[in-house]
Nucleic acid binder design. Structure first.
Lengths: 189, 189, 189, 189
DNA sequence: TATGAATGAGTATTCATTCAT
DNA sequence: CATGAATGAATACTCATTCAT
């Protein structure tokens, strides 16, 4: 599939897919996505050869979007704790602000239609998480693999996002509590 | 007077469903489940009127299984920390030992085909989690809602189970690290 | 299938089938019929080898029931018109009185699951209709076949029954009008 | 811009449905209809969202067809009797000429899958039947409801069509006899 | 290139019938 | 003989994908 003409149409399809997946899961029919995107049924397949390709593209698109958010908020940080907290905060905020995006990403994350390659590619977007995760020798995480921290980070963040979505008034408390867990869990005092 | 309804067959269907859902998600076709269970397709619907009923039954079955495991390992605990750690350990061990069960439970947990009732019923099986979660006033969790802890517990546990499944040699380290996170996150020193 | 033991059970099945067919058409499931008859699903098939056999039996049963009614009301008639009118009246009354029976018979009459043999057998139950129908040479019916009259008789009667079922207050008028049609149509003055 | 929706295909589906319903009743499977129409099974559902929609469309299609026939034969009539007789004749002729159509219409008419709306719409196609039915005060039909005549008209016509289908040589006699019944039954001398 | 009509394999569910108890 | 559990072919409908326009 050659790069298709309309960048805008591709974007519309992605956005429509996000919305559809958020509300109907990965089984959301392509017809529904097409309708929501304002394109014909067949058009989707000129931009994404199969539905799976589309789903994986959505997955990466969301991860990149999240990535951008985190960079945007990347103020020069005083301390490593500050940087870590800001990563955490922007991650959670992104999910809370754009519920659709967050819900869609959750659905995709657990779906077996997202390939291992896409997952690897997505993880590579967040190198600083790994860096922050670099545990000091006496951290409890020292003997866990390097991406155990990553798993835990997103697991905690997703749980927090999900919870805050239903209890917006507790957003601040939960964000703080979640970060404390992460930070103390790494062996910081 | 007729052939009695077979407890064993019902079990076979549940087990088959677990396996099928673990590897194909909740969209695993009933034909596949039937074949795996060694029964005719129609038989499934004698035991579970609809596929959704089957899925909810599987969900509760797995939760109960998990529950039993945790009770079985419920040694008289010296301290509250000890009790908490044992809950955590047996939860994670269950998932690690029976990967299918754990994967299926994850798929079901995020599926919108599991009813709110089933979820409530499932949560009621783990009252001690809530009790352990009771935060003291100066815990970071104090201002979060009461089930934020629960969300975090399963999120961390599932992440740990998933990770350990791929890195069995690090099981001990990850289990310990995960619990530390949880424990310290609650404000314990 | 040997004549089965319980005459009573056979009757219960027939009655249940009448009710089920009246309200759900010939597609009424055998399980529903069994339940309504208070017998097990399989029992039906000890009395009637197939569902089609059951339906044909119901058809004949209803025709016989109708037949009995008409005989019962068969007072010694003064004139041939009187006899004809009484036939007509008892036929229509039967349908009006037992709506279920009438509805079921209608459903069965138009169903292609009733065999030609059953239809012939049923017609043979009403020989006097044919006799009454014997047209005099100058009747408009003279050149129609002998059972055209029969068809017309039941067509008119069924239409009348159906109409009266919804407009019970007009029963008398419709019965009279229907008979007039029949009688005058035969060339009587 | 895409392939236009084919009027011809819709027609093929309707015709196939008529044929299938005529010979197998309303339970004729959609696969059979599709095969007979020479289209894929899914295609049926592009033209008719559900099978019930298809059945209702077939019902109306047949009524309209019948309607056209009757209009076509609508010569300027000398008398009201002449007009009535021509209505009757063309109705019966239609059924005799196209046995499938007539059989299908009969099946549909008694089916509970034809909606009340469709029936009302169909009746509205034949306003002159109601007009002709307007009974004079001393008609036997005077005290019956206004659509008793309609019921009787179709009942007689269908019976006649059915009979003539098997005895084509008696068509003329039966048509005449049937009309006489109707006409005399209305109190005409 | 975009469209949307056409496709047909795939899905959950039903039901007449069989047969172990 | 009666029961009802088990069966699996059949059914209406869906949907990712193809392809004529």
């Amino acid at each position: 599939m050659a790069r298709p003409r309309s960048e805008e149409k591709q974007r519309a399809i992605l956005e429509a897919a996000i919305h559809a997946v958020a509300s109907h899961g990965v089984t959301a029919p392509t017809t529904m996505i097409a309708k929501e995107a304002g394109v014909a049924e067949g058009t989707i397949f000129r931009y994404f050869p199969t539905k799976d390709d589309l789903l994986n593209a959505v997955f990466l698109h969301l991860k990149q979007q999240l990535r951008s958010t985190m960079i945007a908020s990347d103020a020069p940080a005083d301390s490593i704790e500050q940087r870590a907290r800001e990563s955490w905060n922007s991650y959670v905020d992104w999910g809370v602000l754009d519920t659709n995006a967050s819900r869609a990403l959750n659905q995709l994350s657990v779906s077996d239609r997202i390939t291992a390659e896409a997952r690897v590619e997505a993880d590579a977007l967040f190198p600083e998480l790994s860096e922050l995760a670099e545990p000091h020798p006496d951290s409890p995480l020292a003997d866990c693999g390097s991406d155990y921290y990553n798993s835990v980070f997103s697991a905690l963040a997703d749980a927090t996002i999900g919870y805050v979505a239903y209890h917006p008034d507790r957003a601040a408390a939960c964000k703080a509590a979640g970060f404390t867990m992460l930070w103390k869990g790494m062996g910081h005092p």
